[in-house]
Design a binder for these strands. Structure first.
Length: 330
DNA sequence: GCGAGATCAGAATAGACAAG
DNA sequence: CTTGTCTATTCTGATCTCGC
């Protein structure tokens, strides 16, 4: 149903229909009423594309790209972004690219074809050479916001949670509670995990614990996490605290520690990151770094909107992270 | 007060023309 | 005659100006 159909049905010209739709003056009340009745009856919806041709307005469409929308903290961020942008009249296309560069390229190509106004990349996994190349190739002039990552391009703005300082604080607080053999579990190689690792090493150095540090690499696979747990106890048998890059890893390690008879937090304290549902549902409840994903999402949406509407926005915005204390730490 | 027609971006398609 | 290249036209749906 187009403005032409409405005009034909109401027995007026398309100009008259347009005037009614846009509340222009100079229309006889009787004509206005007649056109409005046809509009109401036919469930007419204006074409944003056609309107954009005339008014030089865009489709107000934003792409939200996540590695995997099933991941809880990405879902939380994406949800907040979508809610905020919708409130301001933007539509959103939500995508899960995975880490495969081919699939990432497919989605960038799709976004370029659909002429989105802007893009928000959710997750530090997008801080990569591949993504930088894709942006240059497919959308060099479109405003892009990346959360928990940084890309050195003029059209890309970063929202970064200060997870480095938060993990640094975790180590310091554990040390104050007489925990001096603290291990760090790297469960990924994203920028976010590297920042946490940086915080861990910074604190270890400032507390002069360099001879008692341990970093173990793993992934989110349950068996791998269990293996990482045993590796920690093998390499540093009297470990009395473990900090993990993500809650899911921390919970898996906590379960394995309990299974082999270790008491949490008396024998070993455990801290996770992301402050997810896992932290609240685990036994004991997990102390976790809260990286404020809602605030990150809301800020990302606001920064993109400001950029799209021609306002000046900072290249990099830092959001602080805090620690939510529960029962897995003394 | 209202209708006719120009206009917008840009991809798809049609048509003209030259070269081999 | 076929093929390639270039230019012109068409198409989409809405808004807006001009003129009756």
């Amino acid at each position: 149903m187009t403005i032409y159909d409405i005009a034909r049905e109401a027995n007026v010209s398309i100009s008259t229909v347009s005037r009614v739709i846009n509340n222009h003056p100079g229309i006889k009340p009787k004509t206005r009423e007649k056109v409005q009745q046809v509009l109401d009856r036919s469930n007419y919806v204006p074409s944003v594309i056609a309107r954009g041709l005339v008014n030089s307005t865009t489709l107000k469409m934003v792409g939200i790209i996540t590695p995997d929308i099933r991941s809880e903290h990405h879902a939380n961020t994406a949800y907040t972004i979508e809610q905020e942008l919708t409130r301001w009249g933007y539509g959103c296309i939500l995508c899960s690219t995975g880490k495969d560069p081919k699939r990432q390229e497919h989605y960038f190509n799709m976004m370029a074809e659909r002429k989105v106004d802007g893009i928000i990349l959710v997750g530090s996994v997008f801080q990569s050479h591949t993504v930088e190349k894709l942006i240059q190739q497919y959308m060099p002039n479109i405003s892009i916001v990346i959360t928990n990552g940084y890309i050195e391009l003029d059209n890309v703005y970063s929202i970064i949670t200060d997870e480095c300082s938060a993990v640094e604080k975790c180590v310091t607080l554990l040390y104050e509670k007489k925990r001096d053999k603290i291990a760090f579990v790297m469960d990924d190689t994203t920028n976010s995990i590297l920042e946490k690792k940086k915080g861990y090493l910074k604190a270890i150095e400032s507390l002069s614990l360099s001879d008692r540090k341990l970093i173990v690499k793993t992934d989110h696979n349950i068996e791998e996490c269990k293996r990482a747990c045993h590796k920690i106890l093998e390499l540093m048998p009297d470990t009395n605290a473990i900090i993990c890059g993500e809650d899911i890893t921390a919970v898996t390690i906590m379960n394995e520690l309990s299974r082999i008879g270790k008491k949490i937090p008396d024998d070993i304290a455990v801290i996770g990151c992301n402050n997810s549902k896992y932290a609240e549902l685990s036994l004991p409840m997990l102390t976790s770094v809260n990286n404020n994903q809602e605030a990150v999402g809301a800020t990302a949406a606001r920064i993109l909107r400001d950029a799209l509407e021609g306002r000046k926005v900072p290249k990099k915005t830092i959001i602080s992270a805090d620690i939510v204390f529960r029962k897995s730490t003394p």
